[in-house]
Amino acid sequence: MTHRLMWLLGATLLLVTPVASAEPFVFTAIPDEDETRLQKRFQKVADYLTDELDHDVRFVPVKSYSAAVTAFRNDQVQLAWFGGLSGVQARERVPGSRAIAQGVEDTEFRTYIIANEDTRLETDAGLSDEMRDLSLTFGSKSSTSGRLMPEYYLREHFGEPPEETFSRVGFSGNHSRTISLVASGAYQLGAVNYAVWENEVEAGEIDTDAVRVIWKTPRYPDYQWTIRGDIDDRFGDGFTEQVQQALLTMDDPDLLESFPREGFIKADNDDYAVIKEVGNELGLLDP
């Protein structure tokens, strides 16, 4: 009998959520590459913002792109570092939310199509019919650079959905994993975020003999910081402005390098109209 009582007790306790004294400002980021790196990068950002804003700022890691969007939508985080597509998904679901900053590079982002050496596809070989019937992995299903844009350009070139062009189409989950799957030959081709690729090449983590870049997509807008619309009411007038300023004035090379971005510039929702269009076209967004 006592057990039953304890279960009840447990259930009740569960429902009591802790009450924080001052509401912390929480942000998250899409998990687009190795987690330890993300954790390190965004912890630094959290510390930076805490100093700049004089407010408790926390970073919460999530396991998937959709979890980032859901956390933003559920108001469990108020700010997020989204990709192009996830940003559009999030802003569509949270009225009033807006893009406030993007990396300098994000106005002209691109995707690299990479190939395992066994395919005998040469560096910068371009899109060709020799790619037909090979296997290809995208990154996360909701990734802009890892799925949306490369799929768009591949469709455009081959005139058919990727499932018909390639023998097999997979989703690795993130860019780092795409690179390692193509390196091991598990997939012959991969679509990867160019910034992650360059970063890992620079860090010497890729054997560029085993994996090579065979094509680079045209440029498109990608990552951005998106903030909820009700922030000023909750954290004080001008808080959104302060957050934006703090992001734009971020100039610590150590911090910026970890993204990696040269710096941040202003952004707004309209910058991502093209992403929204492509998302609709590929059926990833509801029109």
Binding site: A183, G185, A186, Y187
Partner: peptide
């Protein structure tokens, strides 16, 4: 379909 799984 893998060609070089052994390293990993």
């Amino acid at each position: 379909s893998t060609s070089n799984p052994w390293q990993e």
